[in-house]
Design a protein around this nucleic acid. Sequence first.
DNA 1: ACATTGACCTGGGAGC
DNA 2: TGCTCCCAGGTCAATG
Length: 272
Amino acid sequence: MPELPEVETTRRGILPYIENQTVSKVVIRNHSLRWPIPDDLEQQLCGQKIITVKRRAKYLLLEFAHGTLMIHLGMSGRLRVLDSDKNVDKHDHVDMYFDNGKVLRYTDPRRFGALLWSAEDIQSHPLINHLGPEPLSDAFDSDYLCHKAKGRQTAIKTFIMNGEIVVGVGNIYANEALFMAGIHPQKAAGKISHKKMTLLVAAIKQVLEKALAAGGTTLRDFRKSDGKPGYFAQELSVYGRGDQPCLACGSPIKSIRQAQRASYFCPHCQHK
DNA sequence: ACATTGACCTGGGAGC
DNA sequence: TGCTCCCAGGTCAATG
């Protein structure tokens, strides 16, 4: 479900309701996510106050005085703030109750997500410390990307979806950014000119910023924390548009598979 | 070091 | 209606 814009939209949606709130109860109905939810999570959180909610890559970081709750939404995860008397559905795996009568509810049909506790410095956590720069930061620029791509044969689409290179770029926005930059998704990362890399970096930043402004992309089941869909789907140029005319030149959009993910591109506008 | 593939899990839609 | 098959926004672990 979520790439960076959807995770950030979720962060902004829940923040005002849970910042500075004290946890009064935690109910875990199913521990079995990608990694087991720690057994002592309730013990760890009860009576403790959420200082703020940050984001690193696609992880939401709920900061407490004595540690951080890391939440990843996987493919189908969702976080909402509800009144505490709302009835529970099949895939509502975790509820975190607050003194203000609200509940933060984690829902995840496929259970690829995660809730993990880290008492140490979050930057040194094994799931975080190997990650590349944030795509919207100044550290992510064409010099950096060219340097990383040097000598690498891997396809550029796989390359920009690799979190060790840059975080937050998932399947939708990788396809969109490559279309915007006029680069074929199968082109070897190491063979892209500096000029094209500059276009690609700009495209990644632009597509993520525009998607964020639209509240993310709702294809099937993504909902903002207030239950409303994101509106970026109507602005997608290639993703999910196989066989339909390219919006720039009219050629049919091609769809192929790379690393077991669907890639969409215009064979006329995007060059190898 | 790098590249590729399998694995995790449920639900929805297409086709028969 | 119901069965089978394929697909889905992620990413780690194992393998060559």
